[in-house]
């Protein structure tokens, strides 16, 4: 598992791990059923505090992206059951709206915008089959 952490970013390290694991999953670099490195392995690999890794794993587990099986380790579940978070969904809608406004003022056409959206969905849209609980 390859994570690129940016210590100079204002995003906390644990949040960078959460975001990047989610991205790797959408890019199918991490596959359902795959085992993630242990807290010890990941903290040693990245030379970061083990409690930072634990915090990231807890958050990923809360969001339903990973599951911890006692004594066996941390895994990507075979079937993802995503937990929709209404507040986050609302924030995503708001960000999208702002993006469209910005893009219009920058002279981006509707076709260009839709094509970009389509391309990104192709790249990251691997979760459409996931069931929602």
């Amino acid at each position: 598992m390859l994570l690129e952490l940016n210590p100079r970013s204002s995003t906390p390290i644990w949040e960078q791990i959460v975001n990047q694991v989610k991205e790797l999953l959408l890019k199918n670099i991490l596959l359902p059923g795959e085992k993630l490195p242990s807290v010890r392995e990941l903290s040693s690999l990245l030379v970061i505090n083990p409690n930072t890794v634990s915090k990231a794993y807890q958050e990923l587990e809360r969001q339903g992206v990973i599951e911890t099986l006692r004594g066996r380790g941390t895994f990507i579940p075979a079937s993802l059951s995503l937990k929709p978070d209404e507040a986050k969904l609302a924030a995503v809608r708001q960000t999208l709206k702002q993006l469209i406004i910005d893009a219009s003022y920058l002279g981006m056409t509707k076709e260009e915008f839709l094509k970009l959206t389509h391309d990104y969905l192709e790249e990251f849209g691997g979760l459409t089959d996931a069931k929602r609980t």
């Binding site: 807290v39 010890r40 903290s43 040693s44 030379v47 505090n49 083990p50 890794v53």
Partner: peptide, 14 residues
């Protein structure tokens, strides 16, 4: 340096 820091975080984790 990296080896030593890695060793320290492993010990703390385990």
């Amino acid at each position: 340096k990296r080896q030593i820091l890695q060793f320290i975080v492993e010990e703390v984790a385990v």
